[in-house]
Design a binder for these strands. Structure first.
Lengths: 192, 192
DNA sequence: ATAATTTCTTACCATAGGTCAATTTTTTTC
DNA sequence: GAAAAAAATTGACCTATGGTAAGAAATTAT
């Protein structure tokens, strides 16, 4: 939790009250590998996670039973089902721990109300959202213009240590290829 | 401009000073079809556009000379090269008018500074960014799980009137297929 | 309106990536 | 650490989409 507070403080001041409130609406928790934090289809999504340590993944299962990974959540990242929260609908995504992970669990509504009481948090969130938008723009452009192999290279650069925690099909479903294709791509890379 | 002010006011109050400032940092302009508002590679991007009327498009040209459309900007949408603005680098995208368009042009820096003087704008922007993030999440998931034909169907639902303004290759490059493939998809649809 | 230009369609072939199934390898469980 | 389960690889084949090129159609410019 201190990690998050310090992160915010590195960019702006924070009153003691504001800091206290953040503690009040959150809870540090550790989950074992395989724990499902949000289940696709559950009727309400009211939690947002800040990752202190470990590795989470958000994904959906389509009508054919195939998984598609939207995001990996590693140290210092936020993860949740923002589609469900924002549209106030049942969970479109599942979130699971790919390894034992320590996260700060926030109540989504309380976190969203923090701004009415402590507008001082606004710049922090604005910056966070902006960076998120930019990274999503980048991801879409990459998906449009790069081959599967190039996307895999980029992925390894962006998440240099993640392969220890993920199964190949996690990465494949993030890149938008089958696990078999990713396997072949990996073989090609080794050859070179 | 009134349209934008009213939009903000529909969700919150706005002081007269704050309203006046918004006028001060913006300028309503009309551009003819084909006008390039941002050129890919230009050294600085310092403008953000709010579309009052018309249709814009942001896209990039890759190393093979192929275009990839990131976004269409229609009535009431914001459009710019947020990648460049946020990373403070030269333009990664181009923005052009697909038809004669009236937009409000904002200075990006001044728009970003508006919050230090008028924090009352924060909730509006936060909401805007959140919705944007959610729609980008949706787009990524769609790209991962839908076929080109399904993505086209969805596109037509999301932008019911846009085909009047766009060339087929604009849409194809947004969906991530070649213009020839889109042409074939369209033929299949007519058959059914 | 007519000519020039751009865009769209279509036919043919090429290819990246998908599917399925068998086998090997790795990871988990007891 | 052995057995069971899960994941990764591999091969054979398949399919959706891409590439090319030429002609048709639509749009734009004169």
């Amino acid at each position: 939790m201190k990690a998050l507070i310090n992160k915010i403080k590195s960019n702006q001041d924070l009153s003691l009250e504001a800091e206290a409130y953040l503690y009040a609406i959150s809870e540090k928790k550790t989950f074992s590998k395989g724990t499902v934090l949000i289940k696709q289809g559950q009727t309400t999504v009211n939690k947002v996670f800040f990752v202190l340590d470990g590795c989470l993944r958000s994904y959906c299962i389509d009508k054919n039973g195939k998984e598609h990974t939207l995001q990996f959540g590693i140290k210092d990242w936020w993860i949740s089902d923002y589609i469900a929260i924002h549209n106030n609908e049942s969970a479109t995504l599942a979130i699971e721990c790919l390894k034992a992970s320590t996260v700060i669990v926030f109540n989504a509504k309380k976190l969203n109300n923090i701004f009415t009481q402590f507008p001082e948090y606004e710049p922090f969130l604005r910056n966070l959202l902006e960076r998120h938008v930019v990274s999503l723009h980048q991801r879409i452009l990459n998906q449009l213009q790069l081959t599967a192999s190039e996307r895999y290279d980029l992925f390894l650069k962006q998440y240099p240590d993640i392969e220890q925690f993920t199964r190949n099909y996690h990465i494949a479903s993030y890149l938008g290829v089958t696990q078999e294709s990713l396997s072949r791509i990996r073989v090609e890379k080794i050859k070179k």
